[in-house]
Design a binder for these strands. Structure first.
Lengths: 213, 213
DNA sequence: ATGCTGATCGGGATAAATCCTGGGCGCATG
DNA sequence: CATGCGCCCAGGATTTATCCCGATCAGCAT
């Protein structure tokens, strides 16, 4: 019986150590490395080709998603599990979209983590109970016109990026070399689609909505 | 040699379990309970009077700080260690201010956590190396006019709260029953103090700056 | 071809935010 | 008591944002 080789990626040393400790004391697993830097994680994954990667996705802006994509390129056989404290299904979706096989929140139990690793190692996908429950709730709820994040255009998302940085419409127009009027229309459409009424609400919405980076 | 009794408070089950596992396997410690609800934590602390509480402060808005204050009331002898993924010294200050004896980031090592528990149990204060380094760096840096978060008044912070929720100046004026002009002055002063130029930048600044709630 | 959508741009209007000026009131500290 | 500071308010100016009304054009699918 071969052990499942594991690489742990998390920017917090304490977390890495605790997981190494816990998983290392289980005969079925073998933690072959842990690192706090996404770039380093990609290197290690390329060299050691671990069976499973535990990827924390609270790391600085979206690097968890990027790292997942990179690792799948350099080591396609490696299964990746996203581990996060966020309970929004949007994170899970994004994670699977970039090539991960599993997603577990930090609300899950240790048993569930173990189960996730074993399942993913077999090539199956695994989403933790919490997220699955939320998703099925959302399905039954039949949302009465929630904000249409999906309907946002590429251009609109790009504009959102500038707004988030604190740029004014005039500045954005200059940077994209388009008319001020166009930027204003984009902003108006964004607010309408997301059912928000001003910039403050928008910025807040963005910051709690990972799908928009 | 009496064991140090420990209560673990963290809203993430996985984190609670891993710490229980690790600390429980050390003869010097005894994890007597763990809970994910701040209110429950206060109850348990009142009953069992643990020697040390590990308090995660990523829990929903400021509940970690509140819970710390409450626990110090119902069990003054209990030492509390704030545990967080945030490396800003502002958190640590706030934590000690509400009665904690220690602060450890999740970048710290397991040894450091053990040391923190032992020190705090003896009645000493303990701040992890990372934060101490940052503080001493800031002292030597002689900040060339960074944003004056400290200089914000209570009223201004209150106004910030409303802005963050997406309320307009007119709405804020109505809710606080003061003049629109006054709110505008407050907003202007806030931007000036924080050296920001518009609402978008402000909201973003807030969201990456926990010291303002 | 016809229709749809995204992106572009404009006029014109209103509301909101930003930026000045200045003043008054209460309270604490020196 | 004088000074500073927080908080309040006002007038007036400018910029920015929000919201209508349009319009053209390109691409793409039925």
């Amino acid at each position: 019986m071969k052990k499942v080789s594991i690489l742990i990626v998390d920017d917090h040393k304490l977390i890495r150590e605790t997981w190494s400790f816990i998983l290392g004391s289980d005969d079925r697993f073998e933690v072959i490395a842990d690192c706090g830097d996404p770039d380093e994680a990609i290197k290690v994954a390329a060299e050691k080709k671990p069976n499973v990667v535990l990827m924390d996705i609270n790391m600085i802006p979206m690097s968890g998603f990027d790292a997942t994509e990179q690792i799948k390129k350099v080591s396609p056989e490696t299964r990746i599990i996203g581990v996060s404290m966020h309970s929004q299904p949007a994170y899970a979706r994004k994670m699977l979209q970039v090539g991960a096989h599993g997603y577990v929140t930090k609300n899950s139990s240790r048993e569930e983590m173990v189960k996730a690793i074993l399942e993913v190692d077999k090539g199956n996908k695994y989403i933790c109970d919490e997220i699955r429950n939320i998703i099925s709730e959302q399905l039954t709820e039949a949302e009465p016109q929630g904000p249409d994040i999906q309907s946002l255009t590429d251009r609109e998302i790009q504009i959102i990026g500038f707004i988030k940085k604190g740029h004014s419409s005039r500045e954005i127009a200059a940077e994209l070399d388009i008319s001020l009027k166009t930027v204003e229309v984009h902003r108006h459409n964004i607010l309408k689609k997301l059912k928000l009424k001003n910039t403050a609400a928008l910025v807040n919405f963005i910051n709690s909505n990972p799908s928009l980076y």
